[in-house]
Design a protein around this nucleic acid. Sequence first.
DNA 1: GTCTATAGAGAGATAGAC
DNA 2: GTCTATCTCTCTATAGAC
Lengths: 201, 201
Amino acid sequence: MEKSTKSKILEAATELMAESGYSGASMRKIAKRVGIRESAIYNHFKNKEAIFETILENLFHSAFDEFFAKRSVEDEARKGKRFLKEYVMAYKLISFDPKHEKFFRIILIEMMREKKVRELFMKHFFDKDVKMLAQAFFVMMQHDLVRSDDPKLMAQEFLSPLFTMRLQVMLLRLDGAPTTSFSTLFERHVDFFWQGIAIVS
Amino acid sequence: MEKSTKSKILEAATELMAESGYSGASMRKIAKRVGIRESAIYNHFKNKEAIFETILENLFHSAFDEFFAKRSVEDEARKGKRFLKEYVMAYKLISFDPKHEKFFRIILIEMMREKKVRELFMKHFFDKDVKMLAQAFFVMMQHDLVRSDDPKLMAQEFLSPLFTMRLQVMLLRLDGAPTTSFSTLFERHVDFFWQGIAIVS
DNA sequence: GTCTATAGAGAGATAGAC
DNA sequence: GTCTATCTCTCTATAGAC
């Protein structure tokens, strides 16, 4: 089965937008990359905006969510530090995955332009994970694995370094710079954080 | 003393770029806001890029740096938690300051477009502060105020939540959304973090 | 130092033949 | 469903009069 022209357009548009944003991905360039004329694009999408909308819709269907959807946070959280290690490992994989990196870039570029993208950003890079992590920390507190505190605050504190690492990794890779030092940093984050919250009995 | 046309151009360009980036700030719009013709701009700047360069140069002359340049990190760090409180207070002020917010936005929008801006971003939003904070934590470790660990790691862990808060504040304010909950979050961050690293004797 | 006028490039989009 | 041709708009930048 050949790739449809429609999916080729989406693929080309995604790449171009990840390189230089919505305005940088002109219909001319998209058409050229696919190997058709600009006018032919309009047989598949109403206009440029429609292409972008479709990309956004597909953006968050993969991920992460699946990884944790399968599991019960209630059960997993009882593993304490091991749970955090697994979570961070998944986060790290996504940070270094080329496809997710493209999406991350598009979101970052376009969130300054469109409110809708800003909301997606907040939801998928903060709120969603904070909520899940807060739940996990709550369970850990109940089982006296970690010290008692506001679970949501703890979740934000745990997530923030991961986000800034991901951001820095993405920026360095834009320039083809090495990111090896970040590889161990993800793990060291868990160790550091755990030492600050663990109850040693 | 009247504002020079040149400085008016810079001011207009800064505002427009903070709203919609380099490409969104057209020479037409800049000229219109200043109250002159586009061609007149070229009497003051070689081209559009030169306007942007000038803005970037001025970006980091104010700030923060001044606040801490006056002080000796060596001495200040001995205050332990009080030092962190003061640092975060300064960080918070900047996060809510309209002028710094404009700069922050421009940097965020344009760092995806230009390597030079990416480097400025890394330097001024991470490296510079991490370096200073690492120095401070090192002093605190020497004085047995905080537990022994890698000072640089500790600095990154301390700074990351501040950065993500600043980012979220900026995004919310773009939409005119309330940011009151973040006001206390800055202080709560210090309390939380301190509890994780402090040596109680 | 500002203006008018205009060049020249690139963008998004449509009409109509095949 | 793709093509050629073309419209219209916006952009950066320059030439030359005042």
